[in-house]
Amino acid sequence: MLAMSTPISLELSINDDRVRASVPAHWTLLELLRYELGLTGTKQGCDKGDCGACTVLIDGKPQLSCLILAANAEGKKVQTIEGLQPAHRKAGGVGLDPVQDAFDRCGALQCGFCQSGMMLSARALLNENPTPDRTEIRQALSGNLCRCTGYTQIVQAVELAIAESTGAEPESPSWSDGNPWKSTTSLSGKNGGDA
């Protein structure tokens, strides 16, 4: 059998931290994140590009960390779920990233395994297009599979984040009699309606 290949030395930015690492050639970015750097918010689902749980943002674009060799991330700017709130605060925001906050308030998860990838795909979409319509949201999230929710609350969460960022009145969610978003601010985390 072959000898082990020479480890690859690389330098990249992860959540605005400069990271130097030495990894075997066959390691994926996902393996580097989880097993070398301890960033376990990025999930290892199918590990072959079907589920999207391992989605991270590379230079702002959602990509599958399970189908990218760590060596290929050399010099790239990687953002994982751990970096979402810090990036929001660094940009002058308070509290959670609005996408995270909306996911929380809409209950857009059950088991939560898909959630970090789902929220990063949503964040990338909103960075590129702050007011996508429902079709565009569904297309942007089409690479992230959720086996629990049926996607309804996930799409609603993204729509809530959009509505609040534009100052529009959020649409009443299908599962509520009243409109729980009406009298809330994005920081209260409480249902303000009569639902």
């Binding site: 959602p62 990509q63 599958l64 189908l67 795909s121 690479g143």
Partner: peptide, 9 residues
């Protein structure tokens, strides 16, 4: 083709 993640790469 594929998903947004796949098309990016």
């Amino acid at each position: 083709i594929g998903s947004p993640q796949i098309r990016t790469q």
